[in-house]
Nucleic acid binder design. Structure first.
Length: 685
DNA sequence: GAGTTTGAAACT
DNA sequence: CAGTTTCAAACTC
């Protein structure tokens, strides 16, 4: 696996931060495929990505370096691509039939992309090692050695739009301490501006709306261009840029559907909340950096400079310790953030040994998902389209070593294969705290909340014929390896990585959105979540789990093509279902509460009557049946009566239910009394 | 647990 | 793009 050279590592910005107070940046030149450095009048450099693909054929940074090789940066997977060799990308592109993701190796660049709902790639062009830091270079100097890219894709969602006019900023790494990527911060001239990235590109401002977020601790980057005064570069993301208005072209099937729901704009794939992107250097661990990405469901590990050869091949112990010592330096005021220590590349190898014979090299934290894209061994003709890889996909070196190709590993599997001794990323604990925004970013296919999905393991699939390589398989559809499933002839694993890659490509060819979440999320919360495609139910009335909308606990919308839909706000059937469900839930809760109370009363009574018991000859005192116990018992009986009444049970049945409950209550009393007696005897009381 | 129903995905 | 087939989950008995 190639690693970033120590020189490059030293040149990388110490910190990259993103604050939530960032002004939205208008999309620049939509439709443009090239990524160019935009001259800016105000010397502000802004990268804006509004689509899922960042492509370009030329990147001109401060004039020193220019990329002439076409490249595509995929937002879909929130990936980190390090040191990707052009030839690799070319092959990948060829096989994938997509624009090549070429990142030239002959130079160094750090490309930070915000792949959230409004991911915006930020290209930090690092001066070549041979070049003088701080010295601006003329634009168009394509002869300069192309920079090496570090692509850090951060963000929760993959609804990026084509990025035009990416700003490439030459960084003086010695000066660069923090890169703050602002987001939707209202421009305020009064706000103290600490620039993290200085712009070397001359000329026109890309976005007049570009603003500088206040708040940053860190060194101010000086502009590398001698001509231009130092400016702050605010890398901002438009907030909710992916709001997608649903055209009212629904094929109206159900007369029950209210018009109102057909006119609601639907935010698809958008992730609310702020997104911070922080790459924090560790003072004592220059090679270990964290990428904190609140708002993203994934954790990112930034691979940095490989250490010296002497350290290579050392036992994993030292490497592990280095990771453990990684400490996030939270500078931002963000309430929630995700921290990922960046592990030295060499350490990565040791940290993530192959879980299987053909396993990739991965590093994961304990609680959340991480993604890595690393150079891998060749996978001839099956290079994935990075633009739309399944969520959570991790590209890792394929078995066999080498620098060509990738192994696509579901992020979840990374967790599966993580090895505890090595999964000791110090900042892991901070990940768990990053819940708020993550929740939004984690809206899964089934529409459950992030908490639900994170805490609830995916149901095992039962595929028999699809080899778990088609979207029929929920595991595959969610970009996960099958794990503890009941499937037969499963190919959704590392052993069949080639087939899996091919299947992924096939799915993406058929539908580029195949692996994107189907349930979008609006600003207003769950109520605005919508199915991206809409259902097509005909017989279920959209009130059974056959219906994807109903299953996701959302209303059908105008984009649904369902017939006889009853899954809308005013639907009496739906309300009835909801009421029944609520009533059932309430009953369960009441019964549970009553039983708990009874047990509590008995326990309390036991505590108070122990002396009486101990004084007796073994006969339990009648005082067990106290007022409290009687009340609790009556509550249980009344609850049964209510239950019988609600279910319209005949009187005989109701009586039976009540008597049964009474029997249960008596049994509890007797049992508790017996227990008290035995306990008392055991302690010779 | 077996069989049926259902609708998304895949195919033509 | 529409119709059909395949598939696995949801559901029923």
């Amino acid at each position: 696996m190639d690693v970033v050279s120590p020189e490059l590592n030293s040149l990388l910005p110490d910190e990259i931060m993103d604050t939530e107070d960032i002004e939205d940046v208008p999309h620049s030149q939509p439709g443009t495929t090239g990524v160019h450095s935009e001259p800016s009048d105000d010397a502000m450099t802004t990268s804006t990505a509004t689509d899922s693909i960042v492509t370009g054929t030329s990147v001109t940074t401060s004039g020193l370096q220019k990329l002439t090789t076409p490249f595509t940066i995929s937002p879909a997977n929130r990936q980190i691509i390090l040191n990707k060799v052009a030839s690799q990308a070319s092959e990948a592109a060829k096989s994938a039939g997509n624009p090549p993701q070429v990142i030239k190796q002959d130079g160094q660049k750090l490309l930070v992309t915000a792949i959230g709902k409004s991911g915006q790639p930020i290209v930090l062009q690092l001066p070549h090692t041979g070049s003088k830091p701080g010295v601006s270079q003329t634009a168009g100097d394509t002869k300069s050695q192309a920079p090496q890219f570090k692509v850090v894709t951060i963000g929760g969602r993959s609804d990026l739009k084509p990025v035009v006019g990416n700003q490439v900023t030459t960084l003086q790494t010695q000066q660069l301490k923090t890169v703050q990527i602002a987001k939707k911060t209202p421009a305020s001239s009064a706000a103290p501006i600490k620039f993290i990235i200085t712009k070397t590109v001359n000329s026109k401002g890309i976005s007049p709306q570009t603003s500088v977020p206040p708040v940053i601790t860190g060194r101010v980057l000086t502009q590398s261009s001698p001509v231009m005064p130092p400016r702050t570069i605010t890398l901002s993301e438009p907030h909710n840029t992916n709001l997608q208005s649903i055209p009212g072209k629904k094929i109206a099937i159900s007369p029950l559907k209210t018009p109102s729901k057909n006119i609601k704009p639907v935010a698809v794939g958008g992730v609310g909340g702020s997104q911070f992107k922080t790459i924090i250097p560790l003072a004592t661990q220059p090679n270990v950096q964290q990428i904190q990405v609140p708002g993203s469901r994934f954790h990112y590990v930034r691979l940095v400079t490989a250490t010296t050869a002497s350290s290579t091949g050392q036992p994993s112990g030292p490497s592990t310790s280095s990771i453990q010592t990684a400490k996030p330096m939270v500078v931002s005021t963000a309430a929630v953030r995700m921290s990922v220590p960046v592990v030295p590349a060499q350490t990565m190898k040791q940290v993530a040994p192959k879980p299987l014979t053909s396993g990739p090299q991965v590093v994961t934290t304990t609680q959340t998902q991480q993604r890595l894209i690393m150079p891998a061994t060749p996978l001839p003709q099956i290079q994935p389209n990075f633009t739309n890889l399944p969520p959570g996909t991790v590209l890792t070196p394929a078995p066999g070593g080498g620098n060509v190709g990738y192994a696509v590993v579901p992020a979840q599997y990374v967790t599966q294969i993580q090895q505890p001794p090595f999964v000791t990323l110090a900042s892991s604990s901070s990940f768990s705290a990053s819940t708020g925004i993550q929740t939004q970013a984690r809206l899964p296919l089934n529409g459950l909340s992030a908490a639900e999905t994170t805490s609830r393991p995916r149901k095992p699939c039962n595929c028999t014929k699809s080899q778990c390589l088609k979207l029929y398989c929920d595991c595959f559809a969610n970009g996960e390896f099958c794990n503890n499933c009941n499937c037969n002839n499963c190919f959704n694993n590392l052993e069949h990585e080639t087939e899996r890659l091919k299947a992924i490509k096939t799915c993406l060819d058929r539908n580029p959105e195949a692996f994107k979440p189907k349930i979008g999320k609006g600003k207003e919360g769950e109520s605005d979540r919508r199915h991206s495609k809409g259902c097509n139910c005909k017989r279920s009335g959209c009130l059974k789990n056959y219906c994807e909308c109903y299953e996701a606990k959302i209303m059908c919308s105008s984009i649904c093509k369902c017939i006889g839909c009853k899954n809308f706000e005013e639907s009496p059937e739906r309300k009835t279902l909801m009421h029944l469900a609520d009533a059932a839930e309430v009953r369960v809760q009441q019964q549970t509460a009553a039983k708990t109370k009874l047990s509590s009363q008995i326990s309390d009574l036991l505590m108070r009557t122990t002396p009486v018991i101990s004084s007796g000859s073994g006969r339990l005192p009648y005082t067990f049946v106290t007022k409290e116990v009687l009340e609790a018992t009556c509550e249980c009986l009344l609850e049964q009566a209510k239950k019988a009444e609600q279910t319209h049970q005949p009187q005989v049945e109701a009586e039976r239910m009540i008597l049964e409950e009474f029997g249960h209550c008596l049994m509890r009393i007797i049992s508790s009394a017996g227990k008290a007696k035995s306990d008392c005897a055991s302690i010779n009381c």
